[in-house]
């Protein structure tokens, strides 16, 4: 079974620092990691590969240094890493990103299942996974918490919903996005780490994947960010004082009573 996992390199923290003059992110001095949600996608991909004696390829789009994320994926047990990197992709929103990744996946070749983390920790959109599936014209189900069964041409999954879960089946090839509950990611093995260090990461440009320039980068992105700002932590913060617990609680109840009825 051929599995493709789409991953993203993100800053290792969400405690962002903003340059007050330019209002842009300060990325210097912040280490980069694989998006935490993608770790579950990688783990699930590697498990399926082991079970079906298949192959798992990680693909990512980003600047040249995103290669590091692919090396880490290799160290976890992925067979191959592919980076798509090109100035033409700069400024891509979720439409253009999912288009570019889908073009890369087509070039990778036949696949049975594509796995994505439910969303990236920096952008939090959850739109790229479904977008890839639409560009590839394959079915998808988001928020998967369990693969119940996988056969050569079908997959049965559990989808997490607000009030419970759904069990669905779909034909392969297909795409799923996974939630944290699906597994516990493994650690890197020493053997794979050595292999990852030496591995050659394939890098493809926009031309290599035959991406239509009209669909790439800023030009291919319907949305534009017009302003970024740090939210104000408005409102007051009060530590309720009192000699005894009871006194404090009485004061708290006065405050919250209107909301509690």
């Amino acid at each position: 079974m051929n599995i493709i996992v789409s991953i993203k390199q993100v800053p290792g923290t969400t405690e962002v620092r903003i340059d007050p003059r330019t209002n842009t992110l300060i990325r210097e001095g912040v280490e980069s990691i694989i998006n935490p949600f993608d770790m579950y996608a990688l783990e699930e991909g590697i498990r399926l590969k082991e079970k079906t004696n298949g192959k798992v390829t990680a693909v990512t789009m980003g600047p040249p240094q995103a290669e590091q994320a692919l090396r880490q994926a290799l160290a976890l047990g992925v067979d191959d890493g592919i980076l798509i990197s090109d100035r033409a992709f700069a400024g891509s929103d979720t439409w253009a990103t999912s288009y570019a990744l889908s073009a890369a996946i087509k070039k990778i070749g036949p696949y049975d299942l594509i796995i994505c983390g439910k969303q990236a920790m920096d952008g939090d959109t959850a739109q790229v996974g479904p977008g890839i599936a639409v560009h590839l014209d394959i079915p998808y189900v988001a928020w998967i918490r369990k693969i119940e069964e996988i056969k050569h041409d079908r997959i049965k999954v559990e989808r997490l919903m607000e009030d419970g879960y759904d069990i669905l089946e779909m034909s392969l090839p297909a795409l799923i996005t996974v939630v944290k509950e699906i597994n516990t990611p493994r650690m890197e093995s020493l053997k794979n780490k050595m292999r990852a260090k030496k591995a050659v990461i394939t890098t493809w440009s926009a031309a290599d994947i035959g991406a239509n320039p009209d669909y790439c980068g800023l030009k291919g992105s319907p949305t534009t960010v017009v302003r970024t700002f740090v939210p104000k932590r408005e409102g007051k913060h009060e530590i309720i004082q009192g000699a005894t617990t009871a006194e404090k609680v009485v004061r708290l109840v006065e405050k919250i009573r209107p909301v509690v009825r």
């Binding site: 439409w95 996974g129 639409v134 988001a142 949305t223």
Partner: peptide
């Protein structure tokens, strides 16, 4: 869960922007 799952598909099909 429903909205954030299917709307990305509609937006890609319509070739228009979507803000999450």
């Amino acid at each position: 869960s429903v909205g954030r799952s299917f709307i990305p598909k509609a937006a890609v099909m319509l070739k228009t922007g979507l803000t999450a």
